[in-house]
């Protein structure tokens, strides 16, 4: 498998072609947060409902490259129904997989490290398909966009980990 095929694994292309949880939710009760990647024009709009410490429902809209859109779709499938604590742990693991420094995980900076991520790959399930992105540093921002939007939405929902 060359780097390009590693980047565009079948799972990623599948989520790009048929994104899960597309749509909108009524605001309120949902929280609406949008994020942009000014470099590429990637755009993610997230609708999130947190209830009793659970991600009860979420929907996504927006447009962008296969990496940003499939990452959002994979994320939505992975976090739906999970507790906020589990979701925050997943965010952490995902960003670690993207080789983002511990210190930068909660901030804006997204400096890739020289070594591949050390996140809990087992726990990542299908999300591990996004590993190939690490070899393309400019695309890491595409992969993490929806995750940053998710964190912002959780914060706005006042949902502590």
């Amino acid at each position: 498998m060359n780097d390009i095929e590693d980047l565009y694994r079948e799972i990623i292309l599948d989520h790009y072609r048929s994104p899960r949880n597309r749509g909108e939710l009524e605001v309120p009760p949902a929280i609406r947060v949008e994020g942009f990647n000014p470099l590429c024009g990637d755009e993610i709009v997230l609708y999130l409902i947190v209830e009793d410490g659970l991600v009860k429902d979420l929907k996504l809209s927006g447009q962008g490259c296969s990496i940003s859109q499939s990452s959002a779709s994979l994320m939505s499938a992975a976090v739906k129904g999970k507790t906020v604590g589990e979701v925050r742990k997943l965010v952490h693991d995902f960003k670690a997989m993207m080789s983002i420094h511990e210190a930068a995980i909660d901030g804006q900076a997204q400096a890739p490290t020289d070594f591949p991520g050390t996140g809990d790959l087992e726990a990542m399930g299908e999300l591990a398909a996004l590993q190939g992105v690490v070899k393309f540093p400019v695309r890491i921002k595409c992969a993490t966009l929806s995750w940053n939007v998710l964190v912002q939405a959780l914060d706005e929902a006042g949902a502590p980990g």
Partner: peptide, 9 residues
């Protein structure tokens, strides 16, 4: 094929 994916390939 999104333009960014195109450029990447």
């Amino acid at each position: 094929v999104h333009p960014h994916d195109l450029a990447q390939v």
